[in-house]
Computed example of a mutant assay.
Amino acid sequence: MHPATAYILEHADALRAEAEPSDELGRITDRTAQILRESGGIRLLQAKDLGGFEAHPNDFLDWVLAVGEQHPSAGWVAGVVGIHPWEISIASPRLQKEIYGQDPDVWVASPYAPFGRAVPVEGGYRFSGSWPFSTGTDHCEWVILGGLLADESGRPTTPPTMRHFILPRSQYEIVPDSWNVMGLSGTGSKDVWMTDAFVPDHRVLDGVEVRDNTYSDRWRPGAPLYTMRFGVMFPFAISAGTFSIARGAVAVADRHIQGRVSSQGSVSKTDPFVLDALAKAHADVEAGIAHVRAIIAGFYDTVGSGGDITVKDRLRFRRDQVRATDRAIASVNELYRLMGSSSIQKASPLERYWRDLQVAATHVCNSREPCYLAWGLEHFGGEIPPTAQY
């Protein structure tokens, strides 16, 4: 077990106590952020020369699972914010020094949706835009934002050219009260925006070159972790956050069943329908985690021995990854259907885990149909849709 995960398990009670306050605050509490920082988990995918652990991706999975089982919003933040050091680690040394030079524990937010418009100017870009869903942003000092190159009028150039723009906290605004949602309330995934911010060239990454390992090959040649490909690592992180909530939901339901007697006098721990749903939920969640863990371990061994993760491999991963999370979510939903009316009370942790899992299910990396389509078309020799993410 990695020390980062061990730290979370040692502080499980303290972390669990911060779940409800985080929901009420609309972001993870300062105490939650402190526990995550002190565990060192955000630095698991960060390069060693930048103060990180450069750990195996499955060490990161274990850490996120441990966090989210106790505090679902914190698990989501752990997965999303925790993946960003992977990308910063393949950026230019100049940018890495700007972000981590004084403090290796700096947190970086996103989102990657290409809602920004970037007009080329001398030495960089004039960048404007507004983005929703910047998870954990109140505790972050930098942000990675997606944007398209544009002409002087702000119209995207043809064909569309996507970049990742990396800005310090001084250059963008967080929109207060912009995160009013049914679940994952404690993630504080607020809107961010800026107008005409200057972003120098060295803080801009080509979206295609992030995905095709151009940056990894340039700055981290031979390093297995950074050869794993963005199209694998980012969905993997989202699955980690999703599984963490699903595992926590099953654990909470299990404890609830221990002492529950229905209004009709049925004892839940001997009710055959409840036990059937509980067994399936335990099995499906753990099977999903094991499935994704095994694929990631195989990929890591492949790149570690000098191989590559092919297009076919990546499409298979996305097919299996979304199927694994979908099975976990479906089995939890079926279990919660049998938990009775008490489970809808806000005082019950059952209610929080269920809501949070429904919101996690909506993330684009958990969207199954596009992944099945892309895999199927490639499988039968067709053309992969340009919108496919792999």
Rank of each mutant, 00 (worst) to 15 (best):
V192F: 06
Q258P: 02
A246P: 02
I83M: 08
L44H: 02
K48V: 05
T29C: 08
G147Y: 01
F165G: 00
V261H: 15
F133E: 11
Q389M: 12
A6Y: 07
A197H: 09
G51K: 00
T270S: 14
G340V: 11
A324R: 00
E378Q: 15
V67W: 03
P272Y: 14
G222V: 04
V252Q: 13
L45W: 07
D217T: 04
G41D: 07
V81L: 13
T302R: 08
V232T: 15
G306S: 12
T32R: 04
G26H: 05
D103Q: 12
D276F: 12
I28P: 14
E10R: 11
T158Y: 14
E87H: 12
W131N: 03
D326H: 15
I384A: 04
I99L: 11
G231N: 02
Y353G: 04
I344M: 15
M228V: 08
P160A: 07
S73K: 07
V267A: 12
N180I: 15
I289T: 15
I99V: 09
I344Y: 15
P93H: 09
G52D: 06
T214V: 08
W76G: 02
R220K: 09
I99N: 04
D313C: 04
A19W: 05
N213V: 03
P385Y: 11
G129Y: 03
A74M: 13
R260W: 12
Y7K: 07
P160E: 10
C365M: 08
V119C: 09
D62S: 10
A324M: 03
K269L: 06
R169V: 06
R211M: 08
H2I: 00
A4K: 08
L44M: 14
S89A: 01
V232A: 05
Q358A: 03
P104T: 11
G381F: 03
A55K: 07
M162N: 01
D201R: 08
V311T: 15
I238V: 14
T387W: 14
L9W: 11
H84I: 09
D49V: 05
R337D: 12
L148D: 14
V274W: 12
G68L: 02
R16Q: 03
D105Q: 11
I88Y: 04
E173H: 13
P349D: 05
T325C: 05
D313L: 08
S73C: 13
A4D: 05
G40C: 06
Y336K: 05
T161C: 12
L275V: 10
Y353R: 02
G68I: 11
A12W: 10
I166D: 00
P272D: 11
E141Q: 11
S134C: 10
Q96F: 01
R355T: 03
D103A: 07
S189P: 14
D30T: 10
Y172G: 02
E334G: 00
